[in-house]
Amino acid sequence: MTKVQFGLDTFGDIPRDLIINEQPDYPQAIRQVVKEAKLAEAVGVDIIALGEHHRFDYAISSPEVVLAAIASVTNKITLGSAVTVLSSDDPVRVFERFATVDALANGRAQVMLGRGSFTESFPLFGYDLADYDQLFEEKVNLFSELLKEKETTWTGQLRPALSGANIFPKTQHGLSTWIGVGGSPESIIRAARYELPVMLAVISGTPKRFAPYIELAKQAAAKFQTQPQPIGIHSHGVIATDQAQAETVAWYSIKAMMDQLGRERGWSAMSKAQFDREIKTGSMYVGTPQTVAKKIAKVIKTLNLARFDLVYGAGNQSITEREATIRLYGEEVIPLVKEMLAE
């Protein structure tokens, strides 16, 4: 088995300690993420990846700006986004910004292109949701051209054409680029076509149901005669030294967050039975380092993954709880998973 990479992802949720009189302290929440990234590096995590949102419950709307700050206080950890909402951004700008972070971080920047699980960026930046599919398709197409770092000539329907455009700064060794995917098989095929690695967001249900997607990626690569690329997943989790404690934290944070999102979409709230099932056989990695490590090792083996990212600190967890997850993930879970995989 190739070396598996372990990441930590956050959207910049507001820690409970930083909500005073119902007022989230966004600046402090952002500085907290910088601190956490440093901690993640110190405990041996391979990647820190930040999501882009434009909503009251998340502090991070410009992941690469935060990554630039992290770049200056770390020197090993990969600095990623998860995801950059390419559909409502400009590919040239995205490339320029990440190439800049890559320079600051000595080649550690990584961009993950996605459509985002929310759509709030569309009206904000003047994009039409009716163009949802086409925007992403065209912009990934342009981005893949930009990755060559040569003069680019490109035409599309939703963005002005480029004729022999040269984009700066150039990177030292190319910009590491992934595609973030929800449940759409089309995205898997697209990633194979552009020869880009895929990160699947596995938020609920048994991860095994994604096995056919991995087969699809393989077959699509064969069809396009491209190199099969690594595949990773990202899922939510809370780690604590005590199982019950971890579950309590997950209940008031992750479950509460999912219920909030559910309400906006008309879904009913998650029941205790569903919650328990997500922890036991589903897609929440909640518990002691031993429990969580077993579950991660199992999913890596089942799906033959090259990368696993734990989404930490979702909902309004306290700083102590967030940092406990990071510390236990790096110091105990990752070494345990590596042992289990070696067996």
Partner: peptide
């Protein structure tokens, strides 16, 4: 059964769905 109702998103057995 539409979005916003208790049954929307329901992944439950018959009796519980009926009640919702």
């Amino acid at each position: 059964l539409q979005p916003g109702t208790p049954a929307f998103g329901a992944n439950v057995a018959e009796a519980e769905l009926r009640a919702m």
